[in-house]
Amino acid sequence: MSDEITFTIDGVEVTGTQGQTIMQAADQAGIYIPRLCWHADLSPGGSCRVCTVKVNGRAQAACTYPISEGMLVQNETDEIREWRKSIVEMLFVEGNHFCMFCEKSGNCELQAMAYRFGIATPRYPYMFPQRDVDASHPDVFIDRNRCILCGRCVRASRDVDGKNIFQFVNRGRETRIAINAEANLADTALSAMDKAVEVCPVGAILRKRVGYAVPVGKRKYDHEPIGSDIEARRAKS
């Protein structure tokens, strides 16, 4: 095939096709690049920076950077691991992440990422910000304490649901997810079956009355680190 592109990730030769991102090619090859704001069914956001890799020596987001012939990608180096770890730690101290009673615990991608990186506790001081909860909707609630501003709901609601319900407001540490209604989530066109609800990586947007359905020990990340499914592909090939 003429549009085949060969490059290396940590010295391992990877073959992808023209137009693929580093993450897509790596996934296919069974090399896991950690990610949070990325979702298989959505356009890449490139905002969380957990997927940062070095391309020919420069830091780039693997979820948005296109592959090219012969490029050198570094993924698992001490320096990059340290960057990713500190991003996850910052996300933990910036919000109010009380895993012990969160319905998402065990299936949460932020938590799973911290487990994968072996984070016992963040090195940064906790901010304990004041965030609000909107439980006005009959079937869905937003708990902004747990929001990591990945923007998945924004992209899903805009591109998949076609409802444009979620958007970021404010800047910097004041940034938060807002809705396209004057006051409450109940006033929006949101449905519990929307993609925007399904894609939240943490417990910020959740369906009501389905929490804690899976017992501890049988949840998604109880035994296998996040990314194991992708790495299993490599073992097979």
């Binding site: 933990f92 109010n96 009380f98 012990m100 009673f101 016992a120 506790t121 963040p122 906790y126 304990f128 910000p129 004041q130 965030r131």
Partner: peptide, 11 residues
């Protein structure tokens, strides 16, 4: 390690 349930009053 992080304050836990009692830290819910922190906000």
């Amino acid at each position: 390690t992080m304050g836990g349930i009692p830290a819910m009053r922190n906000g």
